[in-house]
Protein backbone atom coordinates (compact mmCIF):
# COMPACT_ATOMS: atom_id res chain seq x y z
CA UNK A 1 0.00 0.00 0.00
CA UNK A 2 2.79 2.40 0.93
CA UNK A 3 4.50 1.54 -2.33
CA UNK A 4 1.20 2.23 -4.09
CA UNK A 5 0.91 5.69 -2.60
CA UNK A 6 4.55 6.48 -3.37
CA UNK A 7 4.03 5.41 -6.96
CA UNK A 8 1.14 7.78 -7.52
CA UNK A 9 1.99 10.73 -5.27
CA UNK A 10 3.56 12.42 -8.29
CA UNK A 11 0.16 12.43 -9.95
CA UNK A 12 -1.37 14.13 -6.91
CA UNK A 13 1.14 16.96 -7.05
CA UNK A 14 0.47 17.39 -10.74
CA UNK A 15 -3.27 17.41 -9.99
CA UNK A 16 -2.79 20.12 -7.36
CA UNK A 17 -0.83 22.19 -9.86
CA UNK A 18 -3.52 21.74 -12.52
CA UNK A 19 -6.23 22.81 -10.12
CA UNK A 20 -4.25 25.89 -9.09
CA UNK A 21 -4.20 26.94 -12.73
CA UNK A 22 -7.90 26.24 -13.18
CA UNK A 23 -8.62 28.16 -9.97
CA UNK A 24 -6.88 31.23 -11.36
CA UNK A 25 -8.84 30.96 -14.62
CA UNK A 26 -12.18 30.85 -12.84
CA UNK A 27 -11.64 33.12 -9.84
CA UNK A 28 -9.65 36.06 -11.20
CA UNK A 29 -11.32 38.93 -13.02
CA UNK A 30 -8.21 40.29 -14.68
CA UNK A 31 -8.08 38.87 -18.22
CA UNK A 32 -4.27 38.64 -18.32
CA UNK A 33 -4.29 36.66 -15.08
CA UNK A 34 -6.88 34.36 -16.59
CA UNK A 35 -4.52 33.69 -19.49
CA UNK A 36 -1.65 33.07 -17.03
CA UNK A 37 -3.90 30.63 -15.17
CA UNK A 38 -4.62 28.86 -18.44
CA UNK A 39 -0.88 28.60 -19.15
CA UNK A 40 -0.24 27.10 -15.69
CA UNK A 41 -3.18 24.70 -16.14
CA UNK A 42 -1.91 23.52 -19.53
CA UNK A 43 1.73 23.25 -18.45
CA UNK A 44 0.66 21.05 -15.54
CA UNK A 45 -1.23 18.80 -17.96
CA UNK A 46 2.02 18.54 -19.95
CA UNK A 47 3.78 17.42 -16.75
CA UNK A 48 1.14 14.71 -16.36
CA UNK A 49 1.74 13.39 -19.88
CA UNK A 50 5.53 13.48 -19.58
CA UNK A 51 5.48 11.65 -16.25
CA UNK A 52 3.44 8.92 -17.98
CA UNK A 53 6.22 8.43 -20.53
CA UNK A 54 9.00 7.94 -17.96
CA UNK A 55 10.49 4.47 -17.57
CA UNK A 56 12.46 3.75 -14.39
CA UNK A 57 16.14 3.50 -15.31
CA UNK A 58 15.38 4.57 -18.86
CA UNK A 59 17.10 7.19 -20.94
CA UNK A 60 15.95 9.88 -23.37
CA UNK A 61 14.41 8.35 -26.51
CA UNK A 62 17.43 8.92 -28.74
CA UNK A 63 19.01 5.69 -29.95
CA UNK A 64 22.35 5.14 -28.27
CA UNK A 65 23.49 2.31 -30.51
CA UNK A 66 24.02 -0.01 -27.53
CA UNK A 67 21.86 -3.07 -27.17
CA UNK A 68 19.50 -3.44 -24.20
CA UNK A 69 19.22 0.27 -23.56
CA UNK A 70 15.96 1.13 -21.88
CA UNK A 71 14.24 4.12 -23.48
CA UNK A 72 11.44 6.27 -22.14
CA UNK A 73 8.31 6.35 -24.28
CA UNK A 74 8.62 8.86 -27.16
CA UNK A 75 4.88 9.12 -27.89
CA UNK A 76 3.83 11.37 -24.94
CA UNK A 77 6.76 13.63 -25.82
CA UNK A 78 5.49 14.00 -29.37
CA UNK A 79 1.97 14.78 -28.20
CA UNK A 80 3.21 17.42 -25.78
CA UNK A 81 5.43 19.05 -28.40
CA UNK A 82 2.25 19.58 -30.41
CA UNK A 83 0.28 20.70 -27.36
CA UNK A 84 2.92 23.28 -26.29
CA UNK A 85 2.71 24.97 -29.67
CA UNK A 86 -1.09 24.89 -29.63
CA UNK A 87 -0.99 26.44 -26.15
CA UNK A 88 1.22 29.31 -27.28
CA UNK A 89 -1.06 29.89 -30.28
CA UNK A 90 -4.01 30.19 -27.89
CA UNK A 91 -2.06 32.59 -25.66
CA UNK A 92 -1.15 34.78 -28.63
CA UNK A 93 -4.73 35.03 -29.85
CA UNK A 94 -6.00 35.63 -26.31
CA UNK A 95 -3.52 38.47 -25.74
CA UNK A 96 -4.49 40.06 -29.07
CA UNK A 97 -8.12 39.98 -27.97
CA UNK A 98 -7.20 41.46 -24.58
CA UNK A 99 -5.38 44.35 -26.29
CA UNK A 100 -8.46 45.08 -28.41
CA UNK A 101 -10.71 44.87 -25.34
CA UNK A 102 -8.46 47.35 -23.52
CA UNK A 103 -8.72 49.69 -26.52
CA UNK A 104 -12.51 49.53 -26.72
CA UNK A 105 -13.50 49.29 -23.07
CA UNK A 106 -10.55 50.93 -21.34
CA UNK A 107 -10.33 48.12 -18.82
CA UNK A 108 -9.39 44.46 -18.68
CA UNK A 109 -11.29 43.60 -15.50
CA UNK A 110 -14.05 41.14 -16.32
CA UNK A 111 -16.60 42.52 -13.83
CA UNK A 112 -16.19 46.09 -15.14
CA UNK A 113 -16.56 44.88 -18.73
CA UNK A 114 -19.66 42.92 -17.75
CA UNK A 115 -21.28 46.02 -16.27
CA UNK A 116 -20.48 47.95 -19.49
CA UNK A 117 -22.14 45.18 -21.46
CA UNK A 118 -25.29 45.10 -19.35
CA UNK A 119 -25.60 48.88 -19.81
CA UNK A 120 -25.36 48.37 -23.58
CA UNK A 121 -27.94 45.59 -23.41
CA UNK A 122 -30.47 47.71 -21.56
CA UNK A 123 -30.09 50.63 -23.99
Amino acid sequence: MIHGILGIWNYWIVIILMMTGLFIVISRHNLVKKMVGLTIFQTSVFLFYISLGKVQGGTAPILTGYKNTLYSNPLPHVLILTAIVVGVATTALGLALILRIKNEYGTIEENEIASFNTEENSK
Binding site: V25, L31, L38, F41, T90, G94, L97, I101, Y105, N117
Partner: peptide, 18 residues
Protein backbone atom coordinates in the same frame (compact mmCIF):
# COMPACT_ATOMS: atom_id res chain seq x y z
CA UNK B 1 -19.26 43.32 -27.38
CA UNK B 2 -18.08 40.88 -30.08
CA UNK B 3 -14.62 41.12 -28.48
CA UNK B 4 -15.73 39.96 -25.05
CA UNK B 5 -17.89 37.28 -26.63
CA UNK B 6 -14.84 36.05 -28.56
CA UNK B 7 -12.61 36.16 -25.48
CA UNK B 8 -15.06 34.12 -23.43
CA UNK B 9 -15.38 31.67 -26.31
CA UNK B 10 -11.58 31.37 -26.47
CA UNK B 11 -11.09 30.92 -22.74
CA UNK B 12 -13.97 28.51 -22.14
CA UNK B 13 -13.06 26.64 -25.32
CA UNK B 14 -9.41 26.35 -24.24
CA UNK B 15 -10.38 25.05 -20.79
CA UNK B 16 -12.74 22.57 -22.48
CA UNK B 17 -10.00 21.46 -24.86
CA UNK B 18 -7.60 21.01 -21.92
Amino acid sequence: RALTAAFNYLLIGAVGAT
